[in-house]
Amino acid sequence: MKPLVIFADAQAAAAGVLRTALAGRSEPYAAGVTVGTRVPGDRSPEIPHLPYVLVRKDTDLPHSSMANTRATLRVTVWHTDADQAHDLAQLCQGLLIVHSGPVIRGVRPATGPLAAVDDTSRGTPGSDIDLSTFTVLANVRPATA
Rank of each mutant, 00 (worst) to 15 (best):
1 M>D: 08
3 P>D: 09
4 L>F: 10
4 L>A: 02
4 L>Q: 02
5 V>Q: 00
7 F>S: 07
8 A>T: 01
9 D>L: 06
12 A>P: 01
12 A>I: 04
12 A>D: 08
15 A>R: 01
16 G>Q: 10
16 G>S: 09
16 G>M: 09
17 V>M: 04
18 L>P: 11
19 R>L: 10
20 T>C: 06
20 T>N: 09
21 A>H: 14
21 A>M: 09
22 L>E: 03
22 L>A: 03
23 A>F: 10
23 A>S: 14
23 A>H: 04
24 G>E: 02
25 R>W: 08
31 A>G: 06
32 G>R: 08
32 G>V: 12
32 G>M: 05
33 V>Y: 02
35 V>E: 03
36 G>K: 06
37 T>H: 02
38 R>F: 03
39 V>R: 10
39 V>A: 06
39 V>F: 11
40 P>N: 11
40 P>I: 07
41 G>S: 10
41 G>I: 04
42 D>I: 12
44 S>A: 05
45 P>L: 09
49 H>A: 06
49 H>L: 12
53 V>N: 06
53 V>W: 09
54 L>W: 12
55 V>M: 01
55 V>T: 07
57 K>C: 07
58 D>G: 05
59 T>I: 13
62 P>K: 13
62 P>I: 13
62 P>T: 12
62 P>N: 14
63 H>F: 08
64 S>Y: 13
65 S>Q: 15
65 S>G: 09
66 M>Q: 10
66 M>D: 07
67 A>H: 11
68 N>M: 14
72 T>A: 09
72 T>G: 01
74 R>W: 11
75 V>E: 00
76 T>A: 08
76 T>H: 03
78 W>Q: 07
81 D>T: 08
82 A>D: 06
82 A>K: 09
82 A>P: 03
83 D>Y: 11
85 A>C: 11
86 H>W: 15
88 L>Y: 01
89 A>R: 00
92 C>F: 01
93 Q>M: 08
94 G>Y: 02
95 L>C: 03
97 I>S: 02
98 V>M: 05
101 G>D: 05
102 P>R: 12
102 P>I: 10
103 V>G: 00
104 I>F: 00
107 V>G: 04
108 R>M: 04
111 T>E: 14
111 T>K: 06
112 G>F: 14
114 L>F: 10
116 A>C: 02
116 A>W: 13
117 V>Q: 14
121 S>A: 15
121 S>C: 08
123 G>I: 07
124 T>R: 13
127 S>A: 06
128 D>F: 14
129 I>Q: 15
130 D>V: 00
131 L>T: 05
131 L>Y: 02
132 S>N: 12
132 S>A: 15
133 T>V: 15
135 T>E: 11
135 T>H: 00
136 V>G: 07
139 N>A: 14
139 N>W: 02
141 R>C: 03
141 R>D: 04
141 R>V: 04
141 R>T: 01
141 R>I: 01
142 P>G: 08
144 T>F: 06
145 A>Q: 14
